[in-house]
Simulated scan of single mutants.
Amino acid sequence: MRRPRVKVEHTPYRCEGGTVRIGGAVYGLAAEIEDRRGWVWTALGLMDGTREVEEVVAGLCRTHPEVSERQARAVVEALVGSGYVESGEEVVPPELSEGEVSRYARNYAYFRHADLTPREHGWEPQLRLKAARVLLLGLGGTGGHAGWALAAAGVGRLHCVDPDTVEVSNLTRQVLYDESDVGRPKAEAAVERLRRVNSAVEVTGERRRVGTREELAALLRGFDVLALCADEPRGPDGVRVWANRACAAAGVPWVGGGYSGPLVTVGVYGPGGTCYECLRAGEEARLRAGVPIDLGGPGVLATSAGLSGQFTAHAVIALVTGVPELRPGYVTGVNLIDPTHHVYVRHEPRPGCSICGHPS
């Protein structure tokens, strides 16, 4: 990074006692730096995108004669590596067309704000999205909203799979269809709609019911992430167990979104984290015997289906881009009738689990 500048979203300010706060007020992004001598504040002020790193170091030494060059360099390098600083040189990678730069400008601003990984330019997350291949299984309430969000965000390829046709009762929550689509295969209507959302995305689809783990494993080939938005078959040997095992065998992370009345959740699984079956076992052990933990059922609004799909898409985007870096193996969500109820569940792997556990 030749000419560092502080990201505008992370403009620093000074607090009492000499502390510098950087990163804004967003929980999980902001940091406080003890700066009684003012070195950090001066360095940040010099990082306006017009000076090279060596000039910032020299300026810090001039302003604070007590600072050695070694100390000044350490301060500057730490700030450059913090993620709150970007290059003052606008870099547009050749992989993005002028139209894509215009289309994804708001994506770029979001990633620049949320990403604390030092990068050569702020377009790297978008390039990762463009290269991503996502398998979307299930095109109902959750899947429709997830598919729209992924296409709008600019994933490179999106393959949509669903066995059903559009019914009138779907129209209360399934965003990809309207009254003219009733009776059509969902996969056909969804592909047509998503191609209109973003013609730069390769959207394909098939009307198909996945009936076994082996069929799901075959579908996974060539994809980077699975967005599981289907809920059948249910039960201890259902589609989520198929996904858990097929994705583990393929080394592919997966996201499963769902809802149960007002409770909306998403689970994120993959290499390096607790698998679905271990997390489920941990939750079953915590709950009273007989308490169901399956999500789904007829109780749903457009809002709960929409949140479920958006949470799913957001997790997929995070896995693909690394913004933020996620450690898989958790479920998170919200309760729409209780604003104080935030769902966040993690459990340790079961000893001996063939997918994620420690050897017994």
Rank of each mutant, 00 (worst) to 15 (best):
I293C: 10
E52Q: 05
R62N: 13
A74S: 12
R193T: 13
G299C: 13
G357H: 06
T274N: 00
G211R: 15
L44F: 08
E32R: 13
G23F: 03
R157N: 06
G49N: 09
R37L: 14
V210M: 10
T274Q: 00
A151Q: 04
L295M: 13
R286S: 03
L220P: 05
Y13C: 09
L176M: 10
E348C: 00
Q126F: 01
R286E: 07
A105T: 09
L219S: 10
I22E: 03
A248F: 03
V320W: 11
A289G: 11
A189L: 02
R3G: 06
C356F: 02
V168Q: 09
Y27I: 10
V168I: 06
W39L: 11
A114E: 14
L139Y: 03
W254T: 04
V241S: 06
V91F: 11
Y13I: 04
V20T: 10
N198K: 07
A31V: 11
A243M: 13
V323A: 07
A246W: 02
P328V: 07
V268F: 11
E98H: 12
E206I: 06
T312W: 02
V197L: 09
D231Q: 02
R3N: 14
D294I: 00
R2A: 10
H358W: 08
A72I: 05
R3Y: 15
V67P: 00
G222E: 08
L136N: 02
S260W: 14
G83S: 05
V161T: 06
E100C: 05
G235N: 07
E188D: 14
G17T: 06
G147F: 03
P94F: 02
E54P: 08
A131V: 00
V266D: 02
G299I: 09
G205F: 01
G299D: 15
R36Q: 11
V252A: 03
H358R: 15
A43Y: 06
A289E: 15
Q174T: 09
V134P: 08
M1F: 00
R209C: 07
R195T: 08
A313G: 08
P292G: 05
E100Y: 03
Q126G: 07
C229G: 01
E55Q: 14
G81T: 02
A114S: 10
G144D: 06
L60W: 01
L295N: 02
R51P: 08
E89G: 00
L44G: 04
